[in-house]
């Protein structure tokens, strides 16, 4: 039982990370209909910025906040400068454009920050509690708390504010929203900015729990975040969180309990996605798009 609970904890810790990046992916998909392959690399880049800021002597938490703000501005600018010219393009072209961004950001991160692994200190004490034999790390708690706050703020923003209403309106029917006085252009920049800031947070949280920040740090996470989003539904923030957690936990439990799959544990999360999508092609929480007549 304790082993089981410990593995659940491990799974949750990873799942939270997939969920935070997944949220960013969903946010962009909802507002612009783009699957952003560069999301992980944008997060990577901004995490390097966080690291640079700590080297300049900023406390970690302040470095995270400052880099989130910078990421917000950067994300909005990317939308304006790189994505906007492709407004009328086919989805496939946009996939290629975000792949271009993916390559560019990864390489630029290596160029500016070097190839050796960087360590980012924790913004909180590293503790480990044993509760009934189950080890509970402060990492896990902080990650859960941050994700919870993030979800709450995002929910409040989208559901309880005028800006959130406008964001959702643009995502659903941009022409109509514009006729009602919403600047779609501003909302798209806002969507990208928010997503970049969330990605930055995800990156800053990942690094202390791993062996260090390298140019490959985010690629594995991006794949799992995509998996979580596919499981939960591309247009559903809740789906991204639940999907990410399920993927994390499924992965951890497989590692522990299915020795036959040692080395190929990754089959389980992706098998799970396949099964779920066969039963519900729009993902667990996704909506079937109602055709406008």
């Amino acid at each position: 039982m304790t082993v089981f609970l410990s593995q659940i904890m491990n799974g949750i810790q990873n799942g939270v990370i997939y969920a935070s990046l997944g949220l960013a992916i969903v946010l962009i998909f909802r507002t612009t209909g783009i699957l952003n392959f560069a999301q992980g690399e944008m997060a990577l880049f901004s995490t390097y910025v966080t690291w640079e800021l700590t080297r300049l002597g900023l406390p970690v938490w302040l470095a995270i906040i400052v880099s989130m703000i910078l990421a917000f501005i950067g994300g909005a600018l990317i939308e304006r400068i790189v994505i906007r010219p492709f407004e009328q393009s086919s989805p496939l072209v946009l996939v290629i454009v975000t792949i271009g961004l993916f390559l560019a950001f990864n390489a630029l991160a290596q160029l500016f920050f070097g190839v050796e692994a960087k360590a980012l200190p924790r913004a909180y004490p590293d503790r480990n509690w044993l509760i009934g034999g189950v080890s509970l790390r402060s990492d896990t708690l902080v990650l859960i708390a941050v994700l919870a706050v993030e979800c709450l703020l995002l929910w409040a923003l989208l559901q309880r504010t005028k800006v959130g209403l406008a964001l959702r309106a643009v995502a659903s029917n941009a022409d109509s929203a514009r006729l009602l006085g919403v600047s779609a252009a501003t909302m798209l920049m806002l969507g990208w900015g928010l997503a970049a800031a969330l990605g930055c947070l995800a990156g800053a949280l990942v690094v202390p729990t791993t062996s260090g920040l390298t140019a490959g740090s985010m690629q594995g996470i991006l794949v799992f975040a995509f998996a979580g989003v596919a499981l939960g539904g591309f247009d559903s923030p809740i789906g991204a969180v639940v999907g990410g957690l399920i993927i994390g936990i499924a992965d951890a439990l497989t590692r522990q309990y299915v020795p036959a799959l040692a080395g190929i544990e990754i089959i389980v999360p992706f098998g799970l996605i396949l099964v779920v999508l066969l039963l519900r092609p729009q993902g667990l929480f996704g909506h079937v798009k109602v055709e406008r007549v």
């Binding site: 959702r168 022409d175 109509s176 009602l180 006085g181």
Partner: peptide, 26 residues
């Protein structure tokens, strides 16, 4: 100037009340 477009321009993913509140966006 309020424009009621052909095909009504319903924001289908929002609720009725949210659509109305969106109308007051300006």
């Amino acid at each position: 100037v309020a424009h009621v477009p052909q095909g009504r321009g319903t924001v289908t993913d929002l609720t009725v009340e949210e659509n109305l509140r969106l109308g007051a966006y300006t």
